[in-house]
Amino acid sequence: MPRHVLITGGAGFIGSRLAARFVAEGHRVRVLDALLPQVHGADPTQTSPTLRSVAEVAEVQQGTVTSTEDLRAALRDVDIVVHLAAETGTGQSMYEIDRYVEVNIGGTAKLMDLLTNESHGVERVVVASSRSIYGEGKYRSASGQTVFPPHRSDAAMASGDFAIRGADGEELEMVPTPEDALLHPSSVYGITKHVQESLVMTVAPTIDVEPVSLRYQNVYGPGQSLSNPYTGILSIFSTLIRQGKAIDIFEDGEESRDFVYIDDVVEATMIAALEPAAAGGIFNVGSGQATTVLEVVDALATAFDAKVEVSVSGRYRLGDIRHNVADTSRLRDVLGFQPSVPFAEGVRRFVEWVVEEPVGGGEYERSLEEMAARRLLK
């Protein structure tokens, strides 16, 4: 049965691709997006390819989730909400605290308040949560004991010790983090995503709306912002390679993330929005594979067929985690979906797209200066 879907933040990287996917399957889509300059450029109709693409398939409403009036208009006649709208970026969240809280928490609170107190036809809300809510995630000691370690200290990292250690100083082994792991975010961004998820999962069942939470890992692929310096190391490193600049790798380069390709994320999100078995569920959306920062640089150098100058500086950012990889067994077992695009293939497709885009410059360096000035980059 065709559905009418509202995607908040729908003119962005994930939302624009998701809208096209829904429409291709015969559904109707409305997008609510603030079209922020940091994401879409100074003149979005000219500078935002994701806005142009989504405008071809969906109804686009410019507005913000922090406005009750904008949300009320966007919710008219829809039966599914995919709530992607959020300020993103771990580093920036540590000094733009009020903005992150207002948009991520306040916007979600307004959405749930409207659904609670006004008539509507919404049957399901899918909220985009994040791997950041786990903090350092799940580890294992040499004796096999499960450990959810605390955040790394400034003093330890300043001494060049970036490892995750137990209370006795033993270095711990990272293992895939399942959805029932301890939640202890290490950044303001992570805190806001935790509260977003909690608001939806707590309030929705009380008003007969089905909640679904998707804890996205590190999403990458064609269409992601090449100018926003606060998200996406693939975008950042790609721009540096195209500018002929050296890549400065923080810590020791062995820190790792779970990179998941955009097409896999879109498919998982669509299933979560439509599949009856998803109702009430919380799902990791990742590849289930850990990739180090050094491996990212190698993959990009191969895809660009470029010689890349690399320095491992030992610098570090407060709020960053050491490792992350998702346990995706629940996604497979409950929703029957397993991400299928290997990292090397995904990077190849990403680079094919990047080389057709304009080369940016300057934003990343300015972001580092901002963090250093606030003593968040050491």
Rank of each mutant, 00 (worst) to 15 (best):
M1C: 07
H4R: 10
V5G: 05
I7C: 10
T8D: 01
A11R: 06
G12D: 13
F13R: 04
I14D: 05
A19E: 11
F22S: 06
F22I: 09
G26F: 08
H27L: 01
V29L: 05
R30D: 06
D33Q: 14
P37T: 10
V39G: 01
P49M: 02
T50F: 05
L51P: 02
R52E: 11
S53R: 14
E56C: 11
A58R: 09
E59H: 02
Q61L: 09
Q62E: 15
T64P: 08
L75D: 09
D77G: 14
V78H: 08
I80T: 13
V82I: 14
V82H: 00
A85W: 05
A86F: 01
E87T: 12
G91K: 01
G91D: 12
G91W: 03
Y95H: 14
V101P: 01
G107K: 04
A109M: 07
L111C: 11
L115K: 10
S119D: 12
S119R: 10
V122P: 06
R124K: 12
V125Q: 01
A128I: 03
S130F: 10
S132Q: 07
K138I: 08
Y139R: 00
V147A: 04
P150S: 04
A156K: 12
S159P: 00
G166A: 09
G169M: 10
E173S: 08
M174E: 01
V175S: 12
P176H: 07
E179V: 15
S186A: 06
K193Y: 09
Q196E: 15
S198L: 12
S198T: 15
L199D: 03
M201W: 07
A204Q: 15
T206C: 04
D208T: 15
E210C: 03
R215S: 13
Y220C: 04
Q224R: 14
L226T: 02
S227Y: 05
N228C: 09
N228E: 11
F237E: 04
I241H: 01
R242C: 07
Q243T: 05
E251T: 09
E254I: 03
E255T: 10
S256V: 03
R257K: 05
V260S: 10
V260D: 07
Y261T: 03
V265H: 07
E267C: 02
A272L: 03
E275Y: 01
A278I: 00
A279R: 02
G281P: 00
I282Q: 00
F283Q: 00
Q289A: 12
L294S: 14
A299G: 13
T302P: 08
F304K: 11
F304C: 10
F304N: 07
V308C: 05
V312T: 07
S313C: 03
R315S: 11
R315D: 12
D320G: 14
R322P: 01
D327S: 06
D327F: 05
T328I: 14
R332N: 12
D333Q: 13
D333N: 14
G336L: 04
P342N: 08
F343M: 12
A344L: 06
V351Y: 11
W353S: 09
W353N: 11
V354E: 06
Y364F: 15
E365N: 04
E370L: 14
M371P: 13
A373I: 13
R375W: 06
R375Q: 13
L377D: 06
K378R: 14
